[in-house]
Design a protein around this nucleic acid. Structure first.
Lengths: 151, 151
DNA sequence: ATTTAATAGTTAAATATCAAACCAATTTGA
DNA sequence: TCAAATTGGTTTGATATTTAACTATTAAAT
């Protein structure tokens, strides 16, 4: 049977979904091995804060392509675990600035090596140019599906 | 600053996430425009049933890379909407065979054109070979992260 | 043949996502 | 300046995902 371009795209999205799940699964296993009670999504937030601490929820939502409502819950869950803290921005009291607590900072040295390992394992025997081509492909698809989004 | 291969992979996963969200968002908008009360995930199940009706939950879970527990809930929600029905397999009473109800079948003619449109829009000005290259890239990453998985 | 193991499905609990409604604070603009 | 619009965050309700424990059924093994 002839495979149309749209059939290929259907296989593409399926395979993309599965690759995404493998990344998540890799990290979940690492966390579980060390009995760290964190989800992949909470980790995404922490990673952004390790790059730049003191960011408000909306900025985090934008960086992570998540809904601001999702961020409310994620910050709640990170706060419960005493990893981050909310502060009201004195310059604009609508904003809640999120900062790392000591335990949240401490985890960086433990977890970042796992992230690095994950990418090293995932990218084994793959030329970096292929990965860059993949990014360009994603960006083209994004702009096709949503021309108004200014990436 | 120099961008390492792992930095590129980090950008890759971010961009992949975003592309996935655009696909979901496109379909959600279509469904909403027509006031069809279905989620992207319920649609994934229907699409498999449109390809092959009368499949059990575990097979659906495997096809969609989902957990069997997720399928229980998805089938519950599709049943509530009178789109599918569970049957006990007489040959193996552990299995629940899922079949389309009339309304579930009827939706195919409405929704499949949207799926086709989604892929046509997404793939505009993209040579099919690039998409195939993307699939190979995903498969390589999958086997790197999870060598035991026999795709 | 009887015990053991594996498989399919359900349930519960915790978390995540999304849309919509909402509040408070700030910005715009007539 | 004051009303309207925008922005950041929260809440609610519905759905999705994951893990783990559990039941029922079937298959495997000694």
């Amino acid at each position: 049977m002839a495979m149309t371009k749209n059939d290929t795209l259907s296989a593409f999205t399926m395979s993309m979904r599965k690759a995404m799940l493998e990344f998540k699964s890799f990290l979940r296993n690492k966390l579980k091995e060390s009995n760290i009670d964190l989800t992949f999504e909470m980790l995404q937030v922490l990673i952004e804060l390790w790059k730049k601490d003191g960011v408000n929820q909306q900025e985090l939502a934008n960086l992570l392509h998540k809904d601001k409502a999702s961020l409310t819950y994620l910050i709640d869950n990170l706060s419960k675990r005493k990893l981050v803290q909310r502060f009201e921005d004195p310059n604009d009291r609508r904003n809640k600035i999120i900062t790392l607590l000591p335990e949240g900072s401490r985890l960086q040295a433990v977890i970042l090596p796992w992230i690095d390992e994950m990418y090293t394992v995932a990218g084994k025997d793959i030329p970096v140019q292929l990965i860059k081509d993949g990014i360009l492909l994603f960006e083209k698809i994004q702009s096709n599906l949503n021309p108004s989004a200014h990436s």
